[in-house]
Design a protein around this nucleic acid. Structure first.
Length: 273
DNA sequence: CTTTCGTCCTGACTGC
DNA sequence: TGCAGTCAGGACGAAA
């Protein structure tokens, strides 16, 4: 379940391993993940120089020489590991890049058991999957005002709206629940009722929870790890996600869960209105 | 237009 | 111990 903080953690770890270096060899295991991969992906990556690494929402963007960009999405079970010795290729290792150009090579391995992730190459200014994406929540274009404007037509629950990448980029189920707790807003509240003070609180809570999660190296649930193999410690600071039946850390009330649009939501019925 | 639901996938877990 | 069933969820596409 890599969301914005987990993808940003991956990006930060990959910068020293990839930026300014070149791909000496590439292995691609199968021609499809969530969607078909580009034809001859391994051959097209081999020999390429890597430029800046960027992130947009939950997507990782790797600039290559020749004005091309590799787009990567980790789906829900994807992870990236950096090895300093040539690794054995595992069952779900879909792409392995041998990075050259530094004192010693390293290997970047993309692993994704459930194959909800994706890799693509594009040369256009913007990839079609990024075209309709909302503002970066940690950027200058995101504010309570933009949030209010985009929620004005939303009659469904705010929790469901937060998962829509067109509203704001990078939020998934964990951080939607956590941000609503931070803002004191019920996941059931209809989107268009989030105005003024509630919008201020929600925008601030989104920025706060994402920033804190990045500082902690993301949230590790099940087997998710950072590229260096470390786990993300934000799991210890979750207020509501996965805590149904436990006590609210703020007021002691029992945390509840409900299903909205097929997704589990967790909330404190006392702190969130 | 918004909203919901089905789909894809595999590993972890539950219950008999 | 074994096995069937359930759940997890990101994002698209169909349908309402």
């Amino acid at each position: 379940m890599p969301e914005l903080p987990e993808v940003e953690t991956v990006r930060l770890a990959l910068v020293p391993a990839m930026e300014g270096r070149w791909i000496g060899a590439a292995h691609v295991g199968r021609p499809d993940l969530r969607w078909p991969l580009p034809d001859n992906l391994a051959a097209r990556l081999t020999g390429r120089m890597v430029g800046p690494l960027a992130r947009r929402g939950k997507f990782l963007l790797v600039s290559l020489d020749g004005d091309e960009t590799m787009l990567m999405h980790l789906g829900m079970s994807g992870s990236v590991r950096i090895h300093h010795q040539r690794p054995a290729i595992g069952k779900h290792d879909h792409m392995v890049l041998e990075m050259q150009g530094a004192a010693s090579p390293c290997w970047v391995v993309f692993n994704d058991p459930r194959r909800f992730g994706w890799i693509d190459l594009f040369s256009e200014d913007i990839h079609p999957m990024l075209a309709d994406m909302g503002p970066e929540p940690l950027g200058n274009e995101f504010s309570a005002a933009t949030l209010t404007a985009r929620l004005a037509a939303r009659r469904g629950p705010i929790k469901t709206a937060l998962l829509d990448q067109r509203l704001v980029a990078g939020i998934g189920n964990i951080y939607a629940c956590e941000a609503l707790f931070g803002a004191g807003i019920s996941p059931r509240r209809r989107g268009y009722t989030i105005r003024r003070q509630r919008a201020d609180r929600l925008a601030a809570a989104i920025r706060d929870v994402l920033t804190r999660a990045i500082e902690d190296g993301g949230t590790s649930l099940r087997d998710h790890v950072q590229p260096g193999g470390e786990i993300g410690y934000f799991v210890q600071r979750l207020s509501v996600y996965g805590r149904a039946g436990e006590s609210c850390r703020a007021c002691g009330t029992t945390i509840r869960s409900l299903v909205q649009s097929g997704r589990s939501s967790f909330y404190c019925p006392d702190c969130q209105r």
